[in-house]
Design a binder for these strands. Structure first.
Lengths: 153, 153
DNA sequence: AAAATACCTTACTAATTTTGTCAAGTATTA
DNA sequence: TAATACTTGACAAAATTAGTAAGGTATTTT
């Protein structure tokens, strides 16, 4: 239920790798590919979208790669996913581009709308910096997720 | 991003119709089909799953139809969706049946896990009774969604 | 200059999932 | 026994996802 596509998942992981190079070291597609285990060709598609959206910029030629355009703390997860997968729209009738013929009589409309808003709000609170800060802790990770800021509790 | 399949959507709407008949009037598939604009054949699939899960029971023969097995206030949206679409699993590596090879090194694992938990918790708080109570208000609905309990605000 | 590095773009396609339909039942009641 | 209504499993069209492939452009180092 409510699965995120690999494009979105890989996009976030790629942004994490690029964030590690902030502010000075461009990260190449090849490095991202190796570290995150995603093909170069697929990453090209994904990074292109993110670049056109202004989230990253590229440096060509030897020594080049990708760089964040702003501080990792200023890039939230929702903004990454929106570029790759469009707006959060639990149902297609909530997609701004589609619309719904039966809004008025639909008892579930508000429910989905509300859920979508909650998801979006949550993803907007998490930034790449959170992921960067969390990385060192991952080595100790076992079943106690609660101590993390976005743990389950 | 994060779209719910029609099966889940129709399922909730079908359960709403069945809830309207609680506790005594069986609601036929045909009635649900007409009111919610979903084919009888497709509804059969959906209601079968919900019946096997024990959320509804059926009465055969003339005058028959479907009935809720418990009070509308005791049936939450998460329980309906889980039967139709499996557990909330933002990524396939979080699906209990699939698993993930790189959990330990994955910075995003906790993020998706946490988001899934939040979605689930929210859907568990909304019951069919909430939908039933909301229905009369729908006639006045226009842009002011905020007054509803699960409005956006 | 030219070779190497690395990004850029479009087109295409195989696999999967979704969204249903269809046909042939079984059970119950009037 | 006829009508109503649920039950089940197989199947298939359509849409989406998840990539691959091929060729191009820009920049830097030697």
């Amino acid at each position: 239920m409510l699965k995120l596509s690999t494009k979105g998942q890989y996009g976030v992981r790629a942004m994490f790798e690029i964030a590690r190079g902030y502010p000075e070291s461009p990260v190449t597609i090849k490095e991202i590919s190796e570290r995150q285990d995603v093909s170069v060709a697929y990453l090209e598609q994904i990074l292109n979208k993110l670049r056109r959206a202004g989230l990253i910029r590229s440096v060509k030629g030897p020594g080049g790669g990708y760089l964040l355009t702003k501080d990792p703390g200023g890039v939230n997860i929702a903004s990454i996913l929106k570029e790759l997968e469009g707006p959060v729209a639990i149902t297609s009738c909530l997609d701004p581009e589609e619309g719904c013929a039966r809004v008025e009589g639909c008892v579930t409309h508000l429910l989905w709308r509300s859920l979508g808003a909650k998801i979006e709000a949550f993803l907007e609170t998490i930034t790449l910096r959170d992921l960067l800060e969390k990385e060192p802790l991952l080595k100790d990770l076992d079943t106690d997720h609660k101590r993390y800021r976005f743990g389950v509790a």
